[in-house]
Amino acid sequence: MVRFKNRWLLVEFLPVSTSVPGHVARAQEENITSKHIWAALKQSVITHFGDTGWGAVGSSLTIKYFSPRTRLCIIRVARDPHKIAWASVTLMTTIDGRKYIPHVVHVSGTIKQAQLAAIRHNREVVARYRARAKTPAGYQDSYEEFLQTSTQEIEALQD
């Protein structure tokens, strides 16, 4: 029996503010969905790699997880053409007409490693927010609840 080998891309989409050039927006009133990301990724593959690139990537490309709150996304793609998908994610500029900067945080061979990287990334982001607010490490705030719920959502993913 042959096993299909995949690569898992953990991507964070940072919204770009239209009012100040080069400034990353803190909040965006319109949320994107995994369908918007898949369509934008498909268009990016076709634009940069043509029909041949889409033929290599298209059958295995899926969005396994997307959180509109953190804008973290886990993308599954076949192992052989994963560099085409990775390059296409990096070259994306807009999703559903809104500008985003994609940041590939982690690439792994298993969904478990992508989940662990997503949980680590969420903890690092919360630590940065806490450091910016100058709160003590033991301080209980809304971030604790956020970390628990996001960890449960990410761990619930199945291959």
Rank of each mutant, 00 (worst) to 15 (best):
H36A: 13
A39R: 14
K42W: 04
Q43N: 15
Q43D: 15
Q43S: 15
I46H: 08
I46K: 13
F49T: 01
F49H: 13
F49Y: 15
D51P: 04
G53N: 03
G53P: 05
W54T: 01
G55S: 12
G55D: 10
A56N: 11
A56D: 08
G58R: 03
L61H: 03
T62S: 13
I63M: 08
I63Q: 00
K64H: 05
Y65W: 10
Y65M: 04
S67Q: 03
R69E: 11
R69N: 07
T70E: 01
R71C: 08
L72V: 02
L72E: 03
I74M: 02
P81N: 09
W86H: 12
S88E: 06
S88K: 04
S88V: 07
T93I: 05
T93R: 12
T94F: 11
T94L: 06
D96H: 12
R98C: 02
K99L: 05
Y100E: 00
V104L: 12
G109L: 11
T110K: 01
I111M: 15
K112E: 14
K112W: 08
Q113Y: 10
Q115V: 07
Q115H: 05
L116F: 06
L116G: 02
A117D: 02
A118K: 00
A118M: 05
N122E: 12
R123S: 11
V125F: 01
V126T: 10
V126A: 09
V126E: 04
R128P: 02
R128Q: 11
Y129N: 05
Y129G: 04
Y129F: 09
A131P: 03
R132L: 10
K134Y: 07
T135V: 14
P136Y: 06
G138P: 02
G138F: 08
D141V: 04
D141T: 14
D141E: 09
S142R: 13
S142Q: 15
S142F: 13
Y143W: 15
E144D: 14
E144T: 13
E145L: 13
L147V: 02
L147C: 05
Q148S: 11
T149K: 14
T149D: 12
T151A: 10
Q152P: 00
Q152H: 10
